[in-house]
Every structure is written in structure tokens, then in C-alpha cells.
Simulated assay, not measured.
Amino acid sequence: MVLLGAIVNGIAIIAGTLLGKLLERIPESMKNTVMQAIGLALMLLGVQMGLKSGNFLIVILSLVIGAVAGEWINIEDKFTRAGNWLERRVGAGGRGSISLGFVTASLVFVVGAMAILGALDSGIKGNHEILYAKSIMDGFIAMILTSTLGIGVMFSAIPVVLYQGAIALLATQITRFVPDALLNDCIAEMTATGGVMIIGIGLNLLGITKIKVANLLPGILVAVLLVVLVHNFQVN
């Protein structure tokens, strides 16, 4: 089943959220320290991902063009509105904002190499091991995020399943049209571009700044287009 890995990932996020609800009563100072630790860890992960790039100019252009497109579409606002809609429907249900938890967790779980690579592996090879491993990690992260950001984290399972499921379904046909070398270059630049976004999420969690990371998301698609353009230019 092509979508199995994505579905398991969504279930793991929901399970982690429910477990995280049990940790809401921990002291506020401990929550702040845990959140700072997550922010620092995400920044390190982002740096590691960013270094995967074979052509950092592609990453820069992807982020700039992606930021223009994201601001024009105003993706961050749409994410926030979706979170606010959930908050009105479900209610705050405890500590934390449903909107903030939904937006932050969605970005953390969607922007990353494992989401892309795992979904591609599910579609191309029918191998869900990467997404299973990601599911375990996301479950723990969801548990920790829920203890500080609230139940909104659970709803991030929806975009995660849709995003990874769409990539997996697309990947079932991708090998017919895309050479392995080009596919590997696309993954490298998508990973590096996503890594910079992960750093932004880390900075937001640390409270250092407020970067509209969601508005940078088109940069991942732009990275693919730029890699294809460079590849075709080199071939011709």
C-alpha cells in the first residue's frame, strides 16, 4: 500500500499528542527549557540539512523566489486561519493555542529530508522504513510540543498525511520520466532549502525572531525547478 507510511506517520503524531497531554502539568520553567532545547536541536538539524547542497546558489534563489511567491499567496496567514478555525471548532482545551501548535508542528513535520525521502521511497520502492523511523521521531516530538503548545499539534497530522501521501503517489510514476542523477540532485537541493527553513523554525521556538517560515515553503518546489533548468542547460 503506497500510502501506508504516510498514514502511520499521521497516527504516530496523534498518539504522541495524546501522550503529551499527560505532560501539560509540568512546571512552566521546565517547559520553556524543553522548548529551547527543541529549538537548538532543530537549528543543528537545519544546518546539517543545509550542507547537503551541491550548489548553494540554487538554495538562495529558491528561498528568495519562494519567499516572494509565499508572501503573495500568504501561506502563513492561511495556516494560521486554519488553526484559528480549528480553535473555534474544538476550543482551547487546555494550555496553549491550537493555532500556534498546529502551524508550528505542521512546519516541523513537513519541512525535512525524511518527509521527502520517505515518501519517495514509499512510492518508488514500496518501502516504508524511512517513514516508519520518522513516525517514531515525530511521535516523540509531538509529545514534547504538545506539553508546551497544546492539543493543536495533533491536527498537524492532516497536512503531514496529505503532503507525504501526494509525494508517494507522484513517486509511483516519477522514475519513468526522471533519471536517477537528476532525482538525487533534486532531493539534495530540496533538503538543503528545507534545512534553512528548519533553522528558521528553531529561531522562532527560541523566541529570537518571528520568521514566516510557511511563506518560504514554495522554495522547495522552486528548488526542483531550478535543478531541472540547470540539468537541462548542462545537457544541452
Results as ranks from 00 to 15, higher is better:
213 V>E: 09
11 I>Q: 08
138 D>S: 11
6 A>R: 12
13 I>N: 10
72 W>N: 02
76 E>W: 10
28 E>V: 08
148 T>F: 11
83 G>A: 06
153 V>G: 01
105 A>Y: 08
10 G>H: 12
111 V>S: 06
204 N>W: 12
118 G>W: 01
179 P>S: 10
50 G>A: 05
160 V>D: 05
41 A>Q: 02
24 E>S: 10
206 L>H: 04
9 N>P: 02
161 V>Y: 08
35 M>G: 00
144 I>N: 01
75 I>T: 08
141 I>V: 15
195 G>S: 02
169 L>F: 13
100 L>P: 00
90 V>R: 03
139 G>L: 02
8 V>R: 08
50 G>C: 06
2 V>F: 12
208 I>Q: 12
135 S>G: 15
97 S>H: 10
143 M>G: 03
168 A>Y: 09
109 F>L: 12
157 A>G: 07
61 L>G: 09
213 V>H: 10
153 V>Q: 01
176 R>N: 14
75 I>A: 03
17 T>Q: 06
38 I>T: 00
199 I>G: 03
28 E>M: 02
79 F>D: 04
86 L>D: 02
220 I>T: 11
26 I>K: 04
19 L>K: 06
106 S>W: 08
111 V>C: 12
183 L>N: 04
7 I>Y: 13
20 G>S: 04
114 M>A: 15
88 R>L: 13
61 L>S: 14
227 V>Y: 10
24 E>P: 01
44 L>M: 11
217 L>T: 15
220 I>R: 03
97 S>T: 07
162 L>Q: 05
19 L>V: 14
138 D>T: 00
108 V>T: 14
160 V>H: 04
182 L>D: 04
191 T>I: 09
205 L>D: 06
177 F>R: 04
20 G>A: 03
83 G>P: 05
205 L>I: 08
55 N>R: 14
95 R>D: 13
96 G>M: 09
8 V>N: 07
125 K>Q: 13
16 G>Q: 07
112 G>D: 10
222 V>Y: 00
153 V>W: 03
94 G>I: 07
114 M>W: 15
149 L>T: 00
16 G>S: 08
12 A>N: 07
204 N>M: 07
107 L>H: 07
125 K>R: 15
208 I>H: 10
71 E>Y: 11
44 L>G: 02
162 L>P: 07
93 G>P: 00
7 I>S: 12
65 I>Q: 03
168 A>G: 03
66 G>L: 08
137 M>F: 15
128 H>W: 05
42 L>D: 01
63 L>E: 07
193 T>C: 02
82 A>W: 13
208 I>S: 11
73 I>T: 04
76 E>H: 14
72 W>G: 00
144 I>K: 00
29 S>K: 11
43 M>L: 12
